[in-house]
Design a protein around this nucleic acid. Structure first.
Lengths: 236, 236
DNA sequence: TTTTTGTATCTGGTATACTAAATACCAGGG
DNA sequence: CCCTGGTATTTAGTATACCAGATACAAAAA
């Protein structure tokens, strides 16, 4: 730093380590996943093909990282690659959706169980605070915010379980569920029912009632499965 | 067939459709996965690297399908790819193992629940028959077969749930668990305990007692988690 | 001797060229 | 007219060449 002092101590710049491990493949993956999730898949019925060469031109990279990204998306169930035919965006069947919700229910129940065993009172209190806005008769006024809070509640519950694997699997399921517009949630009576369920779950967590919390969390999700089963027609 | 008859009906050869969709990538994937699972990972502590170019030479294919297979293995958690460093076989930490067993428990509980609702009596009877060999005091004589039956029981239970997603996730977990030699299962008293658990689960299934079957199946797996937690040291 | 710095080599990442199969279209024969 | 088979085109799959960063080690400086 000071050239006249040849024996200067080496200066220590405070710098963040650069994020390597973030290759073209990952960028392409993010871009494609986001694009797929944004495309409101279930509004149409035609086959949606991804053209490797087109994407290569559009994104300005070669086919290689694109193929690697596609291969990952295939693994996660977002696209299907058919030899010499093309890459197609996957539409989940109603059955597959129901299976996903069922697995979600199993994970959420287990997460609730773990929360009663491992989370602090303060952490559980965070869950309750999320619903302060909707207490009493406030729900009607904030119904539009509720959907977001609903999602955050479930994510927080999973997170408090401190089981990374549960979170990882659930977040993949969630990505699929999200791309289906489960507008059904928005119905007012279901929102009220949903809030009651959540409050009951929170209460069971606060009381550290492991069996009850697990059962309520699981059942809450299985109720959604039943509702989808009975009321969703726009899947095949 | 008969050349003299120029107007012969077109002959209909009975042939199986060839299995396409089985590319080099898939073959390499199978080969690598099998090799990894066979390598008794946890006996040593040194870093195990996979050399793309070496594999390319050994398997006689170019790096491309090898990289695609590796990328899939990475997704499934069997290897870790570090930019410009190499591809390393992943050893799961004790914590990760416990998380996997926990998820397994959630799935198995849900599977049991589904079996009480959807499986036929005959299907459930298949489960009971699997243990005919070990009835009464036969266990001691067949203890070496038991491990295999144990595994088959759990796979069959999952299969009878008729939930493909559960099976898919579980089979990946299983692949990981298998590569850890959970020798602990072989202990005689645990095998006896395990058989009793299985019989109780089967009984609950037969009686279509949903809640009980789920609880027993879940608890059986969580007991394994606790046992690993307390008795397995050779991880980290 | 110790520390720094240049450099050869090895790594996975990317771009590009080529292969083979699926498809669509077209021409010729019935 | 219809049907068959050839063929051009388009697809994903694969092979190969090259790139840049990480590492190890040697050479040079202190």
């Amino acid at each position: 730093m000071q050239p006249q002092d040849r024996s200067a101590a080496t200066a220590r710049l405070v710098v963040e380590p650069l994020d390597l491990n973030y290759s073209l493949r990952d960028k392409v993956y993010d871009a494609l996943k986001q694009a797929i999730m944004a495309m409101n898949l279930y509004a149409t019925r035609e086959e949606l093909r991804l053209d490797e060469r087109q994407l290569s031109a559009d994104l300005g990279v070669s086919r290689t990282p694109i193929r690697e990204a596609i291969s990952r998306l295939e693994q996660e169930g977002f696209v299907r690659v058919v030899q010499r035919r093309g890459v197609f965006v996957v539409r989940k069947s109603k059955r597959e959706i129901l299976e996903m919700i069922t697995v979600w229910g199993a994970l959420e129940g287990m997460a609730a169980r773990l929360v009663t065993q491992h989370a602090s009172d303060e952490e559980i209190a965070q869950l309750r605070r999320m619903f302060a806005t909707f207490e009493n008769d406030q729900l009607r006024a904030h119904i539009d915010e509720y959907s977001e809070t609903n999602i955050r509640f479930h994510q927080k519950l999973l997170q408090l379980s401190r089981n990374e694997l549960i979170n990882q699997i659930a977040s993949n399921l969630f990505a699929h569920m999200r791309s289906i517009r489960l507008k059904t949630i928005g119905e007012k009576d279901r929102a009220e029912r949903s809030i009651i369920d959540h409050m009951n779950i929170i209460e069971a967590l606060e009381r550290r009632n492991t069996e009850l919390a697990e059962k309520l969390a699981r059942q809450h999700t299985l109720n959604l499965a039943e509702h989808v089963q009975n009321n969703v027609q726009y899947l095949d």
